[in-house]
Design a binder for these strands. Structure first.
Lengths: 249, 249
DNA sequence: CGTAGATTTGAACGTCCTCAAGTCGAGTGG
DNA sequence: CCACTCGACTTGAGGACGTTCAAATCTACG
């Protein structure tokens, strides 16, 4: 647990501006004009926060005060019931928002954990709502992002409710590669940031089933696995699986 | 399919005002002052729409133009993948919003089907966003509702990802009764508006498993079932199940 | 170089699904 | 009013998929 350069609650106040951020075409400010961007610069986001691998950005029960836009690094969110069951509900990468769960009750309802050393832009929620009253485009964009979160989760419900293990893992991998590709990374060579257990929790499977399914995919020539290094050699084959090919009559 | 009194796209323009609606303490305008309510009356909602049992309020792919607040009746929402798999993602009753899935892409991403003759308040989305710029409280309330939708769905993911059939059905029933109770209905005598198959689809189970589990609950004295009439006699026992009692060591 | 955690793989078991048959209930028409 | 029909529901039997338990291997990191 390398914490040497990461003081838990450290924050940097220097030059945090959306208008020159490399993620501005993916993140919350999509579609804002230069003038609008200038208007929100230094008002919407004033600080970044570093979160070391394994640490929580926030945890269920914490007071909700801000949303977070992932700038670098990789997160997971988990819900847990009182009896200790828990479920990974999503993985977040650059440009994606964390904290939407807290708006309704003013308390966070899930845990957000960094899977690798990460930095997030802190978006004080009061400020976001205030600016949204001034900048209609910002409001619209925020609504779009919340809506997409809802749709994404419904897609996960489809996966959890009606897919076989192989279909789930295939869908998971394709989703991951699409998002990586949209950020300029390779869609075929993927370095997983999460354990088999975390993948399993997200997909409603055990870690053993995830491991076995990876092995099966490799045996079938769909990909190469070596620990967390994945090379996808047949994305079409994976898509075919997601489309239910293996169980059609 | 009794359509005699329900013309599919019919709408009534008379006296549709939030300020005198019996659901104003549950629906979107929660927390608005009298002045604010007066401000949005006849602007936010101008029409109601009737939807007959079995008909769709909207379907996946339709252009998104409005949100809908359920006024009377009962709905389900379904996602389906191209290969014909489909999954009920939720059931909606009075005061709950439909259509949030369309904001992101300006197209609806799910189907919304009336499970009984229903009426919804039509909330043109452009108008909602415009009014949200004027009435900060309305904006806040809308954000809260979207956030709660996200949290709700994460709860469903927990259910689908890590619960046994009995736990799922118990959780489903308790959720239903809580919502009914909040609307002034009995929390013990419930008339299900959906088929076993729809319950099963929502819970990631087959209709047979749902049926068997109902029978088992009855045999254990947790409830009485008679078709869609449910009488819950031991809500604590059901809660105990949800909390994982049956599988604790 | 040793230890703890992550991963792989095997074998047996269990939950839930599939397939099938039969029952029940509401609506229809004779 | 009653037979008829269709869909919804119940119940049983067998099997499949994924889990659980267990052991071995691998990897990263101190």
């Amino acid at each position: 647990m390398d914490q040497s350069v990461f003081r838990p609650a450290s924050s940097s106040t220097c030059e945090v501006v959306c208008s020159s951020c490399n993620l501005r075409e993916i993140c919350l400010p999509v579609g804002l004009t230069r003038a609008e961007l200038a208007h929100i610069d230094r008002r919407l986001v004033t600080t970044r926060r570093k979160v070391a691998r394994g640490e929580m950005l926030y945890r269920a029960g914490d007071r909700f005060e801000a949303l977070y836009a992932v700038w670098t690094g990789f997160f997971k969110t988990c819900v847990s019931s009182r009896d200790g069951r828990d479920q990974v509900t999503g993985f977040q990468m650059g440009g994606e928002l964390l904290g939407l769960d807290g708006i309704g009750s003013r308390r966070h309802e899930v845990d957000a954990v960094a899977l690798e050393n990460a930095q997030v832009c802190v978006i004080p929620f009061e400020e976001l709502e205030a600016l949204s009253l001034e900048v209609a485009t910002l409001q619209q964009q925020f609504h779009r992002m919340m809506s997409r979160e809802i749709v994404r989760n419904q897609g996960v419900m489809l996966l959890l409710g009606s897919m076989y293990a192989e279909e789930r893992l295939a869908a998971f991998l394709l989703n991951l590669t699409h998002r990586l590709k949209a950020r300029g990374f390779s869609a075929s060579a993927v370095l997983l940031r999460m354990t088999r257990e975390e993948i399993g929790s997200f997909l409603g499977l055990t870690l053993e089933t995830v491991s076995r399914t990876f092995s099966k995919f490799q045996a079938e020539g769909l990909l190469f696995v070596r620990n967390r290094q994945i090379r996808i050699t047949d994305p079409v084959g994976l898509q075919h699986l997601v489309d239910g090919a293996a169980h059609e009559k």
